[in-house]
Amino acid sequence: MAAPARPLSPVLRTAGVGHDHARRRGAATRALVDVDLEVAEGEFVAVVGRSGCGKSTLLRILAGLVRPTRGRIEVDGTDPWRAGSRDPAAFAPVGMVFQDPNLFPWYSVRDNVGLPLRLLGVGRAERRHRAEDLCRGLGLAGFETAMPRELSGGMRQRASIARALIRDPAILLMDEPFGALDALTRDTMTADLQDLHTRTRSTVVFVTHSIPEAVFLADRVVLLTPRPGRVAAVVDVSLPRPRTDTSAPEFQAVVRRVRAELEAADG
């Protein structure tokens, strides 16, 4: 079978996107400047940069939670803000894992994970069934009916990942999803995410502070400058998949290159 034709337009695009966060007092915070980014269908893009450089802001813009103060974005070739307000239908294929788990304390883990399905009108039995399946896959077996406050930080984060995955979003935005995990769980989850991406061919934009993690997962690594964030460099990672060996010299070479670029961007 022939390889599928490359889409004419990328699934995600930012053109000259900049953002100033208004503040209660004082000048606005300039978080992003002139970000031009194109993410092709099925592509895995990692975003790295200093704390406070605007990574979360960028993801929030892509999820339609923040309207950029300059420039425009496209999701699947259309501008979701064209009508002047957020078009929920345009953002429907987008799922997000937030930097904070943001679980609802009044719902059990199972109901938190199933919430996106409830909003889609899926019945209770199927919701629970799928949520429980996903919880097991993410190492939350036995905690399906627990309340969020009974979970550890890392477990909460995994529950929030399950919530994002349950509706199989075509575009997945992940904001440091593995930040609160121990090294071993983190390795497992990273490998699982690679499998998931290979299996579903979903498009992923993944924010992380770990350069090896970015190199392990991504087709391209986007480096942002310190605040205000601009695209300092984009490093292509052409290592073959599935990637397993992080100690291989080829892998280490890419890691070194990304690190060097990042240091250069820091100026």
């Binding site: 339609g64 953002f91 937030f98 904070d100 943001n102 609802f104 009044w106 919430l115 909003l119 919530r163």
Partner: peptide, 24 residues
């Protein structure tokens, strides 16, 4: 605000937001 973001990102209706977030 984080909870509100979750529902906004999921495109929840006003009614669903009232029921799942504001009232609880």
């Amino acid at each position: 605000p984080g909870h509100r973001d979750v529902l906004r990102e999921l495109g929840a209706s006003r009614w669903a937001t009232l029921r799942s977030l504001d009232l609880p």
